[in-house]
Nucleic acid binder design. Structure first.
Lengths: 258, 258
DNA sequence: CGGGAGGTTGACCACCATCAACTGCTGTGG
DNA sequence: CCACAGCAGTTGATGGTGGTCAACCTCCCG
């Protein structure tokens, strides 16, 4: 109960978890009324979760699936020498465990980065849904393929780009996907990430992330006080970041020049 | 016609492309006779391909699907400053374009790394197959999820590990997956990669890959003359590489200690 | 014989990691 | 109310890993 914000932007006036999911799936495959009804009748069980709650742990077997209703989450893996690599972020409306739905064991961790809420669903229910609603099944499969495309871009990001570009690119993806959820405009962004988490996502150190953020600010890509970012020039930021949103496959704002 | 080896190990005594595919899918989901029949009757059209043949180009729409019958292929992306990142390798038997099957445009390139042969199949045929054979659909979806798991491990590899470990890890994955295809033992390996390609896969430079290979040889992880590698101590190589094959989800040799 | 691709080695240097000190903020308990 | 701890962020000094540039080698193939 503690640690979750139920104040002025309480959950009652936000879209429900099923609405978020429907919105997202409809972007991928147009659903019919029967599909939407089937989704609305799924027996989700809501859980209010605190920051750092581990939702799935590497090596365990996964028997239920996890829809992010509020807040932000990340998937990460560890190297043997103890370094953590964040491999994906999740936004409200993301069905986070499609990646594990057909695999016997989790190969990475899933952790809340902020407080929030998740909606659990037994995997058996998800499989029944997929069997009875082919369009939903296709939307789920497409979503998993978009995830994979994002992974490929991350490999490129950490493998080929220098530190400044990497940080900028990560920010661009976060902003683009965040806007797609429809909660906020692009220009203003409350980034729910510590600099250490940005470091773990980009393969850098927190110290160097800090320096890159300062340089990006000095170059006029954005301004920020704390984690409140203001994107003054989206075109400039995209250019610095080498950000081409085609890899998001239409699940985020596709075009938007200077 | 030129550039393909039809000599002593010609294609006639190798498993056919459908046999390779069946073998692979059966590892993921046990198929029934009707499933196998349906796959055998797919109208594949074989093409002999030379080295460096581009099978799919980024930004194009994909209308057919590509089964690797012989040789090796790689997927790669380019950053704006012209650096190439290889994001995946493919072995004979891999249905290489599941990743693009539901997405409107290719987000990366697919290129042959050796000469070989591919079997093309219209995507419409693949979709019909998936609709009529749920077990095959599940196997295909699972294969795509295993691919995604491999992408995640690559993010970890380039994001967290030092150069020596990275190169060793890439070799381990290649060896493990190659043995799973069943063509060769682990101990001997003809690596179909230039050092420049290893560099593009690990986010290093060819010069530094060369140095790392020399160090790994000096440490006794393997010996090699040219691209002929002999793995003297698989346990030692795994240890140096921080290689834990769980992320391959059983599509390669799972256990094998020192 | 010549050309080109891939591989090998050395010299040098830059980017980023590491270590350390210090700040500001927030929550907690005296 | 202040004291204090703890976390996130900030900045500087220093060093190492890996990039860059260049030369040269071998092998293969025309």
């Amino acid at each position: 109960m503690t640690g979750i914000d139920n104040g002025s932007d309480g959950m009652s006036d936000l879209p429900s978890h099923t609405d978020l999911l429907l919105r997202k799936l409809n972007l991928l495959v147009p659903l019919q009324a029967s599909d939407e009804d089937a989704i609305r009748q799924l027996p989700f069980s809501i859980e209010i979760v605190r920051q750092n709650r581990m939702l799935v742990r590497e090596g365990t077997t996964v028997s239920r699936c996890c829809l992010l209703a509020k807040g932000y989450a990340a998937r990460h893996k560890m190297s043997r020498q103890g370094k953590r690599q964040i491999v994906a972020f999740h936004m409200p409306g993301d069905l986070m465990d499609i990646q594990h739905s057909l695999l016997p064991r989790a190969d990475h961790n899933l952790e809340m980065m902020t407080s929030g809420a998740v909606a659990w669903l037994p995997l058996s229910e998800l499989k029944n849904l997929a069997l009875s609603c082919p369009r939903v099944a296709q939307a789920l499969a497409t979503d998993a393929l978009v995830d994979a495309s994002i992974f490929r871009e991350w490999v490129l990001n950490v493998g080929c780009r220098d530190a400044k570009t990497r940080v900028a690119h990560m920010l661009c993806e976060f902003i683009a996907r965040r806007e797609a959820v429809g909660v906020s405009p692009v220009e203003k962004l409350e980034l729910p990430l510590t600099q250490e988490q940005i470091a773990d996502a980009t393969g850098l150190t927190p110290v160097h992330v800090n320096r890159m953020l300062r340089i990006l600010t000095e170059e006029g890509a954005f301004t920020h006080v704390g984690r409140e970012f203001t994107i003054s020039d989206w075109g400039k930021l995209k250019l610095i970041a080498d950000f081409e949103p085609a890899y998001l496959h239409g699940t985020a704002l596709e075009q938007r020049s200077s």
